[in-house]
Structure formats: C-alpha cells, structure tokens
Amino acid sequence: MSITYLEAIREAQALALRSNPAVFLYGQDIADFGGAFKATKNLAAEFPGRVKDAPISEDAMLGVAIGAAIEGMRPIVEIQFADFSSLAFNQIVNQAATHFWRTNVPCPITVRLPSGGTAGSGPFHSQSMEAIYAHYPGLIVLTPATVGDAYSMLLDSIDLDDPVIFCEHKLLYYHLKEPALPDPKNCLPVGKARITRSGKHATIVTYSAMLHESLSAADELLKDGYEIEIVDLRSIKPIDTDTILGSVARTGRLLCVGEAFPWGGVTAEVVARVAAEGFHLLDAPPQRLNAKDTPIPYHPNLWAAHRPTARAIAEVLRGMLRF
C-alpha cells in the first residue's frame, strides 16, 4: 500500500473533520464534486453539511472563513489555484493577518493554495505565492515537500490559532508517494527545517517541489565526488535560520533554490540572513536560483527552461564549487 501527497492532504482533512467539530471546509467545487484536484473526494458524503461549495468569490470566501473563525470555528479554505488567491489578498493580508494583533482575538483559518507549475498550465495556474504572504506580519506560511509533511503540517495548520497559508505543490499531488502516513506525534513541528540529505561541500536550502530537483542535482554532483547537504525549509514563515546557518557552517557554501519569481522572495531572504549572520562561515559568494523574471510560460519547452531544474541547479553548484 502507498499513499500520495494529494491523498495525504485529503486524509488530514478527513481526520480533522472527524476529530474536531469546529472544522469545516469551504471552497469552489469541493462538496459533491470533490474539488478540482479531488483533495476533498468523498468528504462531503462522510461529513454532511461540513464541506461547503462556495460561489466564485474569493474575497467573500476568505471573509466568511475569517468571520467563522472569530466565532470559534476552524475553517479550511481551498482556493482552486494559488494564483486566484490574489482575489482574496485583501482579506488575507489586511483582515486575517492583522486580526490578532489588533483585537487580541485569534483568527485560526487554514488557506490551502494548490501552488507551483505543471506542464501546460501557463501564467495563471502555475504561480508560487509563498513570498508574498510571508511578507505580511501575522501569517504562517508552510510549504510541504513530502507526503508525510503534507499530512502532519496540514494537521498542524488546523490546530494553530493563527492564519496559515498552506502552499501544497500540484506537481507532487499524484506522483509523490510514501508507504504510509506518519504519526503526527513523531513529526517535526512547524517552524523547523529538515536536513534531508547530509553533505560537506555545499548546502542547498530549498522547499516544496524544488526539494526534489535539488535531490536529483545532488545525485548528479555525487558522481563527481561532491557531497551536497540539502535543507528542506518546510516552513517559510517562521523560517528556521539556525538550521540554515548550522548547515552553512559545515559546508561553507550556500545555494538557495525556489520556484517563485526572482525579485525579493524566499531565496533572497535566506541569502540576506546568511550574509548578515553567517558571513564568516562562507567560502564562496552565496547564490540563489529562481524561476525567470517573466510570467510563467504555457509551452512545456519554455516552462522547463523557466523554472529551476536539476540540471540548472547542478550547473550553479559546479560554479560555486570552483571557488
């Protein structure tokens, strides 16, 4: 038996619905249809009235979730594609994110954002929004890269009293599999990064689908005798600076890889922190690799060159290792 990343997300929601009467799901096409990606398949039948279809009104969907959360509910909102969360931006960053600070009343909502590129999806069904939300105080931003993390971190999100932006990568939905779901009690807590692979010549700090491209790149470099350490951030905000610095202290080299657009963002934040707090640990200039600074292209040929791939990551690593 094996379970996919998408099934882990569905199982986490099922467990939350089963164990907490305050949990409900709200999103477009998520009830009887089971969601555009089937992340809520069969849940409407199992939990009548608690898996609700929403009109195509992202702003109101978030407003409704915020209001329900103020009243003690634990809503999970599915935005059909992360890209459409731009339509809910105001409620997320101005209402949800400021609520606890302003009023002392928590706003425990979970916003699921099916994120990232897949072949042929084009400019409006491919975006990675994590850096935009991480910019705002009052939000927690999570980016699981494994089946186990998708499961345990979604459960963590629902338990947290703060608004959580849960960036789940669409490319991992179907093909990423693990033999079984972990026991959430044995999982890393929110805010902790994981050293996915130990090494000594360079550190890659990455997250979400780029973890898997980075692992392939590390395999490639191993053929040349280089051992690359890989840090999976898991949580963008809060970010685990200590684990990053610890890894750079061991390797002396940093490459940060993200799928989002290059200007600002998570990779810039990581490089800035390492430069400011760990400059003395570096044997080479810290590097970052992101998607290109254009909208995300439709055609697979262009898309494959737009996002960082294992090959591109390996190339940057080789350049850094020449120092």
Binding site: S57, A60, M61, V64, I66, A68, A69, E71, M73, Q91
Partner: peptide
C-alpha cells in the same frame, strides 16, 4: 460584509 456573513455561518 463577508466577515459578518462568516460570523453568522459560524
């Protein structure tokens, strides 16, 4: 408006 709607739904 949607926040009050959500409070009522809650």
């Amino acid at each position: 408006i949607s926040v009050v709607t959500g409070m009522l739904l809650g």
